[in-house]
Simulated assay, not measured.
Amino acid sequence: MNRILKEEMEQDFFYVHDSIVYGAIKKCGIHYDHANYDDFVQIGRIKLVDAYKEFPKSLFNEEYFYQFTGYAYRKVYWALMDQIRKEQRIFEREAALPDSFEEWQMTDPEPFDEDFVMWELFHSMLQCLSEKEQVYLKDSVIEQLTITEIAKKRKVSRKTVYAWRKQVAKKLEHYQAVIKK
Rank of each mutant, 00 (worst) to 15 (best):
M1K: 12
N2L: 11
L5R: 09
K6R: 14
K6V: 08
E10A: 14
Q11R: 13
F13Q: 09
Y15S: 12
H17A: 11
H17M: 04
D18Y: 09
S19K: 14
I20N: 02
V21L: 02
Y22S: 08
Y22G: 07
G23H: 07
G23E: 09
K26H: 13
K27L: 15
G29H: 00
G29I: 07
G29L: 00
G29Q: 00
I30K: 01
I30G: 01
H34G: 00
H34A: 04
A35N: 06
N36E: 03
Y37W: 08
Q42H: 09
I43T: 12
I43R: 08
G44R: 01
K47N: 15
L48W: 02
L48D: 10
A51I: 01
A51Q: 05
Y52A: 02
K53M: 12
E54Q: 14
E54P: 03
F55A: 10
P56K: 14
K57L: 15
K57I: 08
S58G: 10
L59T: 11
L59G: 08
L59K: 11
N61C: 05
N61T: 12
Y64N: 15
F65G: 06
Q67P: 06
F68M: 06
A72H: 03
Y73W: 14
W78H: 12
A79S: 09
D82V: 07
D82F: 05
D82M: 06
E87C: 01
R89K: 15
R89E: 13
I90A: 08
E92Y: 07
E94D: 04
A95W: 03
L97C: 02
P98H: 04
D99Y: 02
S100T: 15
E102L: 14
E103P: 01
W104K: 15
Q105L: 14
M106N: 06
M106T: 12
T107I: 14
P109A: 08
P111L: 04
P111S: 06
P111W: 02
F112H: 14
F112E: 12
F112V: 11
D113W: 13
D113E: 14
E114T: 07
D115C: 11
W119L: 13
W119Q: 10
W119I: 05
E120I: 07
E120K: 13
E120T: 14
H123D: 09
M125C: 12
L129Y: 05
E131F: 09
K132N: 15
E133R: 09
Q134R: 12
Q134D: 00
D139T: 04
S140V: 08
V141Q: 03
V141N: 01
I142P: 10
I142W: 04
E143V: 13
L145V: 07
T146F: 00
I147W: 01
I150K: 13
A151L: 06
V156Y: 01
V156W: 00
S157E: 11
T160V: 11
A163L: 03
A163V: 00
A163I: 02
A163S: 10
W164Y: 15
R165P: 02
R165W: 00
R165F: 01
Q167W: 00
V168P: 04
A169D: 11
E173H: 00
E173T: 02
H174N: 09
H174F: 04
I179F: 05
I179S: 02
I179E: 05
K180C: 06
